[in-house]
Nucleic acid binder design. Structure first.
Length: 927
RNA sequence: GCCCAGGUGGCGGAAUUGGUAGACGCGCUGGACUUAAAAUCCAGUAGCCAAUUGCGGCUGUACCGGUUCGACUCCGGUCCCGGGCACCA
């Protein structure tokens, strides 16, 4: 009986579909397990072989949990709003909904062929109105809440209004855009309009005028993590700074909880570290520096209050409001000119010219509150308006930027930290600053002689005692800009009256995307929604023209999967309390600081408001590595249409040319296919070696332009989905990046056929026999159970595949045909090669799907050994092996080893100094 | 510059707690079967040295050093590759 994967795979895919094998429902009689893949953006290019890597891993885990009695939620859907479909729409006029629909259909076909155990009845699409209804709904909740720092959670805006009515802002500790001081009477006496403006200062979704990343080519604003090195991540267009009124989410309110929550979840250290860096907590002090001859004080933030005696000048951000107030009239022209110049510089230029030192003196002095010396106040663009207070005390001896600045402008430098055991030196002779986190204080008054940590602690106390500052924590994490001037996104359920935003009624959700005549901004530069006729409320008020960004739809999709058809809520309480949170989340690192911060924020907010029962959404997270491409090259002799094989290319002057990896097999080029591949090469000639044209190769990014894209459909057509699944896993550890090389696939395909032959050893007739299995056979099976179990639990799927190979090799050698061995083996391999497992399971007489079988129980007694083959080492070097009874005592082992003739041979008369015996492991003789 | 992860045969990789380095697979070499090929099977395959056979020897996990009876694994330093962040005070 041949292994005919085409027939087998299509039969079982059809079976699973018609029997709804993988559909799940809330079932309190079973423990739940939620396995989630990061959902894909359905791009026009379809899936390549790198995409399913994580999906296969999560599918294996889902099967494993299912076979172990868990009720497994394993859904899939599409992150379907996004720029590519819209850019395509602008170019072609094709509605993005149509493009998206087509792309999704293609994705689905490809995914289906791999035979995943998804519950497709739960599919979601972010662009579906029934889905974005709840995206809009969460936005409304954010708008209707503020963050109370005292209770440390989000509370309803009504509670804030109530508070303001009673006490004004007195004792109010709220996350806000800017501090306000109001009495209850002032609040109550305000017109409603003004009150609405005040409330925007506190809402978790708020409208504010901010400096944004404006991308002219895309005609939209981008979030910080959508911009890389001054260019848009999607499309690579230049991005500039612009001041605009935008919706923002007050993510910063959750900074501390987003940070501390990391300690409660099982993510990799590197990923947690990335999030910690992004949140960027720094503990320090705010300090006041009085300005000489003026009424003002300058507030600065520093993490190194201990170096205060080395603060020899101050620097303000060019955008600081203090700049015009402090600038001395004699310096006004110069200062204004400098500010004008920095404003013109885009962020891109500032990044490109990191080393360029610029700045200007204001003509004004401040007083260092500890040294009492007058110090110059400068303006420079290396100080950022948005971080800390927009002003710093410069300690040039111990901060590299301050140091370069001081050298450049000839400002004083005073050393205040000594490296232990060294003498002070003249800082102006230094190559660079000494950014010391440890050392001994000098030139620092009451701090002299203290270590840096001691000095930091003492200064903090001193600052508070003297009333010249206070201890302060800062975060780098900014509020997320939530408006995009685009068409293909969720509309905001917001209208404007007297220029102020108001929410629509919840019963009017979803607010559907309107039809427009074109997907471009209007002539006036308004977003595309301005083209929609009647984009007004029933009352005639204009509706918000922006749409929401990509991360809006992906921030709570894991909740929607729990209860995808719910018309009344994002997720019902019942479904949420059953499924709770994601037990295993698999996806790429590219979402480390975007999606994974925003979803945690949304989830924490929904937790505060009582809509979900878990504070953190993703318990365990695995990052799959990238699959890189393996490109092939042909070597064209310069100026000819002649190609020379790899081994001979050094005899000629050649240019390497990428050739399509799909017409190369084991690095041998298919000459006929090459001639047909591109008209340019139809007349190509070849210089062969051993009758073959051998190509060169290199590992590169998998991309169309390198002609190294491998499509899973092609692999499945040739080898079947089970082979693809096994091979993707066999390639290497899931978390590691590795190149795809189709060459190795024969090995796993042969393995499957060999497994098949265990069942059909003698041709057409099923070879499986009842009868009692031999101890050697049981040992092979149970060794395999143990290893596979361990491997799956630690996500080491590559070694699982090796284990199956070893198992099948051993069983073949034993000529094993016992159902007692072969049937449990099918259950073990079902997660990896489900079609094959189902087929053989049914052929061995089972009428129901293997998916409801039980995971074989490990019996450790089969693994017990009577004897141990000890490696005998001399001075740590293994010399020979000695088989000894497993229960032999250490003393007996020593005796036996010393009596062995090989031992005397290696000792060559020397006396052993020591014999190390580690029972069941090793013997080491030291001489 | 800072943070994180990694560096093992021709290639992908294995070695789970410090205990036989190179499992498993690809490729390659030789052989069996075959008219032939495919498929399948068998043997060999880290490098160097030795060798009629047999028994072997030395080196080796990026590099240098350390801890240990014993180090791919732990510690210190250096180099290289990948990812993230970057005037963040």
């Amino acid at each position: 009986m041949e292994y005919s994967f085409r027939e087998i795979e299509s039969r079982w895919q059809a079976y699973w579909k018609s029997n709804k094998t993988f559909e799940v429902r809330v079932d309190p009689s079973k423990p739940k397990f939620y396995v989630l893949d990061m959902f894909p953006y359905p791009s026009g290019a379809g899936l390549h072989v790198g995409h399913p890597l994580g999906y296969i891993a999560s599918d294996i885990y889902s099967w494993y949990k299912r076979l172990n009695g868990f009720n497994v939620l394993h859904p899939m859907g599409y992150d379907a709003f996004g720029l590519p479909a819209e850019q395509y729409a602008i170019q072609t006029g094709q509605h993005p909904a149509i493009t998206t629909e087509n792309n999704i259909r293609r994705y689905r076909e490809q995914l289906d062929k791999i035979g995943f155990s998804y519950d497709w009845s739960r599919e979601v699409r972010t662009c579906d109105p029934d889905y974005y209804h709840w995206t809009q709904w969460v936005f409304m909740q954010l708008f209707n809440h503020w963050y109370n720092k005292i209770t440390d959670k989000a509370e309803s805006i009504e509670s804030l209004i109530h508070y303001l009515e009673k006490r004004g802002t007195e004792g109010l500790e709220a996350a806000c855009s800017g501090p306000l001081i109001l009495s209850a009477a002032e609040w109550s006496g305000m017109p409603a309009n003004r009150q609405q403006e005040i409330l925007l200062n506190y809402r978790l979704a708020y409208l504010a005028e901010t400096l944004v990343n404006w991308c002219p080519a895309l005609g939209t604003v981008l979030a910080n993590d959508e911009v890389k090195e001054g260019f848009s991540v999607r499309g690579g267009h230049p991005v500039e700074q612009r001041k605009m009124k935008q919706w923002l989410l007050r993510v910063s309110a959750y900074a501390e909880r987003l940070l501390s929550g990391l300690d409660t979840i099982n993510w990799t250290d590197s990923l947690k570290e990335m999030q910690r860096n992004w949140i960027g907590k720094s503990e320090g002090a705010n300090m006041f520096f009085p300005v000489t001859d003026k009424e003002y004080t300058i507030e600065i933030f520093t993490t190194r209050a201990d170096t205060i005696y080395g603060a020899t000048f101050m620097v303000l951000a060019p955008e600081s409001e203090l700049v015009p107030l402090l600038t001395h009239p004699a310096h006004r022209d110069e200062v204004e000119k400098y500010i004008e110049e920095t404003r013109k510089r885009t962020e891109r230029e500032r990044i490109a010219e990191v080393k360029k030192i610029t700045g200007v003196f204001t003509g004004t002095y401040a007083v260092n509150p500890f040294t009492r010396e007058n110090i110059q106040i400068w303006i420079a663009d290396y100080v950022l308006a948005g971080y800390g207070t927009g002003a710093i005390m410069a300690v040039p001896a111990h901060d590299s930027r301050d140091f370069r600045f001081a050298l450049h402008f000839n400002l004083p430098i005073v050393q205040v930290v000594l490296q232990p055991g060294q003498e002070p030196t003249d800082p102006t002779t230094w190559q660079d600053s000494f950014d010391a986190k440890e050392g001994i204080m000098v030139n620092s008054g009451f701090l002299n002689g203290l270590s840096v940590p001691e000095a930091i602690a003492k200064t903090k106390i001193e600052i508070e005692n003297r009333g010249i500052g206070k201890v302060q924590v800062n975060y780098r994490l900014r509020d997320a800009i939530f408006s995009r001037q685009r068409y293909w996104g969720e509309p905001f359920p917001v209208f404007y009256r007297d220029g102020l935003p108001y929410l629509m009624d919840e019963k009017d959700l979803p607010l559907r995307l309107p039809d427009v005549d074109a997907f471009l901004p209007t002539e006036k530069g308004e977003p595309p929604l301005a083209r929609a006729a009647h984009w007004k409320t029933a009352g005639g008020d204009p509706i918000e023209l922006s749409t929401m960004p990509g991360f809006a739809g992906s921030s709570a999709y894991y909740l929607r999967y729990m209860d995808p058809g719910n018309k009344k809520a994002l997720v019902s309480r019942e479904a949420n309390e059953y499924w709770q949170d994601v037990d295993l989340y698999i996806g790429g690192t590219e979402h480390a600081v975007g999606h994974l911060i925003y979803s945690r924020f949304w989830n924490k907010f929904l937790f505060d408001t009582g809509y979900v029962c878990k504070d953190e959404p993703f318990k365990k997270l695995i990052n799959q590595g990238m699959i890189q491409g393996r490109s092939n090259f042909a070597y064209r002799i310069k100026g000819t249409n002649k190609f020379v094989s790899l081994g001979l290319k050094d005899q000629y002057d050649t240019t390497p040319i990428h050739v399509d990896v799909n017409i190369v097999s084991h690095d041998v080029l298919d000459l006929e296919a090459f001639r047909n591949w591109n008209p340019e090469y139809s007349q190509a000639e070849f210089i062969l070696e051993n009758g073959k044209y051998v190509c060169g190769w290199a590992v590169e990014k998998m991309s169309k332009s390198m002609y190294n894209v491998v499509n899973p459909d092609v692999i499945i057509d040739k080898y079947g989905a089970d082979t693809l699944r096994l091979y993707e896993m066999f390639l290497g550890p899931i978390e590691q990046s590795k190149p795809w090389d189709t060459n190795g696939i024969d090995g796993v395909h042969k393995f499957i056929k060999k497994l098949w032959r265990l069942f059909y050893a003698n041709g057409e007739q099923l070879a499986v026999t009842p009868g009692k299995a031999a101890p050697a056979e049981l040992k092979v099976l149970h060794r395999t159970i143990k290893k596979i179990q361990d491997d799956i639990e630690r996500f080491s799927f590559n070694t699982s595949v090796s284990t199956f190979m070893i198992c099948v090799n051993d069983l073949t050698d034993l000529k094993c045909s016992k159902s007692e061995i072969l049937e449990p083996l099918l259950v073990l391999i079902a997660p990896f090669a489900p079609h094959l497992a189902e087929e053989l399971w049914s052929r061995t007489g089972h009428s129901q799907s293997i998916s409801i079988a039980s995971w074989p129980v490990l019996n450790p007694t089969f693994l017990l050994k009577d004897t141990i083959e000890y490696p005998v080492s001399f001075n740590g070097k293994m010399r020979y092996k000695l088989e000894l009874p497993a229960d032999m005592s250490i003393a007996e082992i020593e005796k036996t080893v010393m009596e062995n003739e090989q031992t005397s041979r290696y000792l060559q008369g020397a006396m052993p100094k020591k014999i190390v015996v580690v029972p069941k492991r090793i013997i080491n003789i030291v001489y």
